[in-house]
Simulated assay, not measured.
Amino acid sequence: MTDSTKSRARGTDKRRRLTAAAAQVLHRQGVERTTIADIAKAADIPVGNVYYYFKTKDELVQAALAEHEGSLAELTTELDGLPDPLSRLKALVNAWVGRRDTAARYGCPTGTLAVELDKRADGTLDQEAGRVIRLLLDWVEHQFRALGLPDPGDLALTLVAGYQGMSLLANALRDPDIMVREGNRLIRWLDTVTAARDGS
Score class of each variant (00 low, 15 high):
17 R>K: 11
113 L>P: 02
10 R>D: 15
85 P>M: 10
76 T>P: 08
29 Q>C: 00
74 E>W: 02
84 D>I: 12
114 A>F: 07
125 L>W: 06
17 R>A: 15
86 L>H: 09
103 A>L: 15
118 D>G: 11
12 T>M: 13
56 T>R: 15
80 D>K: 12
118 D>Q: 07
12 T>F: 09
83 P>N: 06
16 R>V: 02
53 Y>S: 09
105 R>F: 02
58 D>H: 03
125 L>N: 04
109 P>I: 05
39 I>N: 10
52 Y>C: 00
40 A>W: 01
51 Y>G: 00
83 P>I: 05
73 A>E: 03
44 D>L: 05
109 P>W: 13
150 P>M: 08
26 L>C: 02
114 A>R: 08
73 A>S: 12
137 L>S: 13
107 G>M: 05
98 G>D: 08
129 A>E: 11
149 L>H: 04
15 R>I: 12
113 L>S: 05
38 D>E: 05
111 G>W: 00
69 E>R: 09
118 D>C: 02
138 D>L: 15
21 A>C: 09
17 R>H: 09
92 L>S: 01
152 P>R: 12
111 G>E: 03
132 V>G: 03
77 T>P: 00
14 K>C: 09
105 R>E: 13
47 V>D: 08
55 K>R: 13
118 D>H: 12
33 R>P: 02
98 G>L: 00
147 L>V: 11
42 A>S: 13
68 H>C: 07
79 L>G: 14
24 Q>I: 04
97 V>T: 12
108 C>H: 14
91 A>F: 12
130 G>S: 14
141 E>R: 14
80 D>I: 09
61 V>G: 08
125 L>M: 03
87 S>I: 03
79 L>P: 13
97 V>L: 00
145 R>H: 13
138 D>N: 08
125 L>F: 03
145 R>L: 10
14 K>E: 13
71 S>K: 10
124 T>D: 15
69 E>M: 11
136 L>K: 11
63 A>R: 04
151 D>F: 01
46 P>F: 10
93 V>S: 10
144 F>V: 01
95 A>L: 02
27 H>S: 11
66 A>I: 03
123 G>L: 02
76 T>S: 07
137 L>Y: 06
70 G>Q: 10
52 Y>H: 10
39 I>K: 06
10 R>Q: 15
96 W>Q: 15
18 L>R: 07
133 I>H: 09
55 K>T: 11
96 W>D: 08
25 V>C: 07
99 R>L: 12
133 I>L: 15
107 G>Y: 02
100 R>K: 14
145 R>C: 11
87 S>H: 06
50 V>P: 06
44 D>Q: 10
14 K>D: 06
148 G>R: 04
64 A>P: 01
100 R>I: 01
49 N>K: 07
114 A>G: 04
89 L>G: 07
36 I>D: 00
50 V>F: 11
14 K>Q: 12
38 D>M: 06
133 I>M: 15
122 D>Y: 00
126 D>W: 04
149 L>I: 00
10 R>A: 14
56 T>M: 11
40 A>I: 00
27 H>R: 08
